[in-house]
Amino acid sequence: MQHASPSPIVWPDSLDRGEPPSLAVWKFASCDGCQLSLLDCEDELLAVAGRVAISYFPEATTAMVSGPYDVSLVEGSITTAHDAERIRQIRRQSRLLVTIGACATAGGIQALRNGRDVDGFRSIVYAHPEYIDLLAESTPIADHVPVDLELRGCPIDRSQLLQTLAALLDRHALRLPTTSVCVDCKARGTSCVMVAHGTPCLGPITQAGCNALCPSFHRGCYGCFGPMESPNVPALRTQLELLGLDGAGIDRLLDTFNGPAFAEFEQEPESGPP
C-alpha cells in the first residue's frame, strides 16, 4: 500500500513559468552514498537533462549557481553548530526541501554516539580533537527546519528518487509505501528468512521501499528504511529473543541505521479506538 505524502507538496512556481526547476544537492554528516544514488541514475537522468537545471551539486559539477532553488535534496545529519545554521540558510533558499537517506531522516549511523561519551570518542578518533566542535547528538534535518518530503534508506532507493523527480516535473501525486518489508518479500517470492532459516530480521517493523533487498540475499533486514507505519517493536523483540538474540544484540540491530526512529516505538504500540 502506498500513501500520499503527509502534507500536499506545493510545487515550485517555476513549473508554471515553463522553466526547468532548479535543483540543488546538499551534504551534511554522511557518507555521500545517497548522492551517489542520484549519480547512479545517469541513464534515466539523461531523459530529463533539459527539464531540470542542476544548480548546485558539488559531487557532480563545479558549476555553482546561487539560490534560491526550486528543489533542494539534503543528505546527512546535523552534528555541529555550523551545520545547524547552514541548514536554516538552505531552507530559506529552497522552495521545496527533500531529505534523502537515513542520516537526514533519522540521524543515521552517527546517531550511535547519541547518549554516549562523545568527548571520549573524539579524543580516540582524532589526532587533534580540539579542532572538532561537535553537538552532543546527531539529529535529523526535520529536527531543525520544516521538511517537505523524506526519502528513507541507507542508501535511498534510486527508483523512489526517480519517482520523486517524475512527480515533481509533471506534478502528479507521489505515493511511497508505508507497509512492512515483508509485503515486498512476499510479492517478489522471497522465502521468509526468519520463519524458514531462523535469521533475525527487522523486516516486519521496517518500511518497504528497497524491494526487500537483504532478505533476497538470505540476510535479515537491517532496518535501514526506518519504522513502518505501525511498528510493533516490543512484539518483534520477543520473537528475536526466541531466535536467540539477547537484549544487547537486539539493541545493536535496532540502533545501527535508524536507532532514534525505532526508539520512539519501544513502548507498547499506541492503541487507538478500535
Binding site: S180, C182, V183, I205, E229, P234, A235
Partner: peptide, 23 residues
C-alpha cells in the same frame, strides 16, 4: 499486543484477494 501488522498472513492466505493500484 503480538500482531506486527506486517501483512504476511494475508499474503500467504490462498483466499485473501485485496489489491491496490500502483501508478
Amino acid at each position: 499486543e503480538r500482531c506486527l501488522t506486517c501483512g504476511n498472513c494475508t499474503a500467504v492466505c490462498p483466499t485473501c484477494f485485496c489489491t491496490d493500484m500502483e501508478d
